[in-house]
Simulated assay, not measured.
Amino acid sequence: MKKIPMRKCVATQEQCPKKELLRIVRTPEGTIEVDTTGKLNGRGAYLKKDEAAVELAKKKGSLAKALECTIPDEVYEKIMEVVRG
Results as ranks from 00 to 15, higher is better:
residue 65 K to Y: 09
residue 76 Y to W: 13
residue 24 I to G: 00
residue 46 Y to H: 10
residue 77 E to R: 15
residue 47 L to Y: 08
residue 69 C to E: 05
residue 75 V to T: 14
residue 25 V to M: 03
residue 52 A to L: 13
residue 16 C to Y: 13
residue 51 E to R: 15
residue 79 I to P: 03
residue 65 K to H: 12
residue 65 K to M: 10
residue 18 K to F: 02
residue 65 K to C: 10
residue 65 K to I: 09
residue 35 D to R: 04
residue 57 A to S: 08
residue 28 P to H: 07
residue 54 V to E: 06
residue 44 G to E: 08
residue 67 L to V: 10
residue 30 G to R: 06
residue 68 E to I: 13
residue 46 Y to W: 10
residue 18 K to L: 04
residue 54 V to K: 06
residue 48 K to S: 10
residue 54 V to T: 07
residue 18 K to N: 06
residue 70 T to E: 14
residue 63 L to A: 04
residue 80 M to F: 10
residue 82 V to L: 07
residue 71 I to P: 08
residue 55 E to I: 13
residue 13 Q to I: 11
residue 18 K to Y: 04
residue 39 K to T: 02
residue 26 R to P: 01
residue 51 E to T: 15
residue 65 K to Q: 09
residue 22 L to E: 00
residue 51 E to C: 14
residue 17 P to D: 04
residue 37 T to P: 00
residue 23 R to C: 00
residue 24 I to R: 01
residue 63 L to D: 01
residue 26 R to M: 05
residue 69 C to I: 09
residue 49 K to Y: 04
residue 34 V to W: 00
residue 43 R to C: 08
residue 77 E to D: 13
residue 61 G to F: 03
residue 42 G to K: 04
residue 73 D to P: 14
residue 41 N to W: 10
residue 72 P to R: 11
residue 49 K to E: 03
residue 42 G to L: 02
residue 28 P to S: 05
residue 77 E to V: 14
residue 69 C to R: 11
residue 40 L to I: 05
residue 43 R to F: 04
residue 36 T to Y: 00
residue 51 E to I: 15
residue 78 K to H: 13
residue 70 T to Q: 14
residue 45 A to D: 00
residue 45 A to C: 01
residue 60 K to H: 09
residue 22 L to C: 01
residue 81 E to N: 14
residue 51 E to D: 14
residue 61 G to R: 04
residue 16 C to T: 13
residue 30 G to N: 04
residue 23 R to T: 00
residue 65 K to S: 11
residue 64 A to F: 11
residue 16 C to I: 11
residue 57 A to K: 08
residue 79 I to L: 05
residue 58 K to S: 09
residue 38 G to T: 04
residue 23 R to E: 00
residue 14 E to K: 07
residue 74 E to Y: 15
residue 81 E to R: 12
residue 55 E to P: 13
residue 77 E to F: 14
residue 60 K to G: 08
residue 65 K to L: 08
residue 74 E to F: 14
residue 45 A to P: 00
residue 22 L to T: 01
residue 62 S to V: 10
residue 66 A to V: 05
residue 17 P to W: 06
residue 75 V to Y: 10
residue 19 K to A: 03
residue 57 A to Y: 06
residue 20 E to K: 11
residue 76 Y to D: 11
residue 11 A to Y: 11
residue 53 A to V: 05
residue 44 G to Y: 08
residue 35 D to C: 03
residue 53 A to D: 02
residue 43 R to E: 06
residue 68 E to Q: 14
residue 19 K to R: 07
residue 47 L to N: 10
residue 48 K to T: 10
residue 66 A to Q: 03
residue 61 G to Y: 01
residue 52 A to I: 11
residue 81 E to D: 13
residue 36 T to V: 01
residue 82 V to N: 07
residue 15 Q to W: 08
residue 47 L to C: 10
residue 13 Q to N: 08
residue 35 D to H: 02
residue 42 G to W: 01
residue 15 Q to P: 07
residue 37 T to I: 03
residue 78 K to N: 13
residue 57 A to N: 07
residue 70 T to W: 14
residue 73 D to E: 15
residue 75 V to G: 13
residue 28 P to M: 06
residue 80 M to G: 12
residue 66 A to W: 03
residue 50 D to N: 12
